[in-house]
Nucleic acid binder design. Structure first.
Lengths: 147, 147
DNA sequence: CTATTTGCAAAGCTTTTGCTAAGTT
DNA sequence: AACTTAGCAAAAGCTTTGCAAATAG
């Protein structure tokens, strides 16, 4: 895995691919790092606090780039805009498909699964940004009452 | 869990909530059942083969309803429109966040996790429509080559 | 000088909302 | 009559595209 954690590492990684490190890219990355689970819209607002002329198009392009480099991840929590966060923000989301509520659990709970997929499929599961869908405790209870 | 598998069961479930079974709802459900992993757009096209005047608004409203009843599930495979399928279409998707490729694995692999979440959080994980994000074998190999 | 990146405006696609008409109980 | 549902049109929300100007190597 290319070193991409440090500013210098990122610069080199980009350079190896014929790309450049720019102020905009640094600002977007900083914003994602500090916000945790932010939509492109929210990230744009944060970046514009420092550099008001940065366009949301650049936010989208940069998020896509950083995602492909593995520096950030996006998750679809329910419908609507996806939510971006940095790679090391460690937890898993339980999304209730009935009420839309979201709770977080430690991602260590997925360690067994990560191992299984690595051996079976050569697939490196990113357990740090998962949205798992199901029914939450409250909605299960309500279903029983209607029945 | 309310019986919702049969046409009669669905009718009753709806009735208990002050709702009705309609031809449109039946058609949408049939379409989702036969298509497997279809977008609202595709479902609409299928429904319109039988009933050309059904509006896509109705598709959206019905999918949302069926989702809340637990009859269908939606998954976000990458960006763009979500993909709907019936509850019993059993497999899990591994989505590569680098190249976007998708592979399927049997959902039994998640049984241990389902048990853990049920005990720990009272959360009933729906393991039949999951999209797990990570890096696929090919993209892992390519990363190593660039390095 | 060449290639990459940005900002801007416009277009594109998906989804939701407001409202009226139609259908059920 | 009261209430749910459907269709339609318009609006809203999110994302991408095309292109010229700016910037970096």
């Amino acid at each position: 895995m290319a070193d991409v954690e440090t500013a210098r590492g990122l610069r080199k990684t980009l350079h190896d691919r014929g790309m450049r490190m720019t102020p905009q890219r640094q600002l977007v990355l900083d914003a994602v790092r500090s916000l945790e689970h932010a939509t492109p819209e929210q990230i744009c607002q944060r970046v514009q606090e420092t550099a008001p002329t940065v366009n949301i198009t650049t936010i989208y392009r940069t998020l896509d780039l950083l995602d492909r480099l593995g520096l950030v991840r996006h998750t679809h929590l329910g419908h609507g805009a996806p939510s971006y966060s940095v790679e090391d923000h460690q937890h898993v989301h339980l999304v209730c498909h009935v009420c839309g509520s979201i709770q977080e659990i430690p991602c260590e709970l997925l360690d067994p699964l990560v191992g299984t997929l690595r051996e079976r499929d050569g697939f490196e599961l990113d357990a740090s940004h998962l949205a798992l869908s199901g029914t939450c405790r409250d909605c299960l209870k309500q279903e029983q009452e209607i029945e």
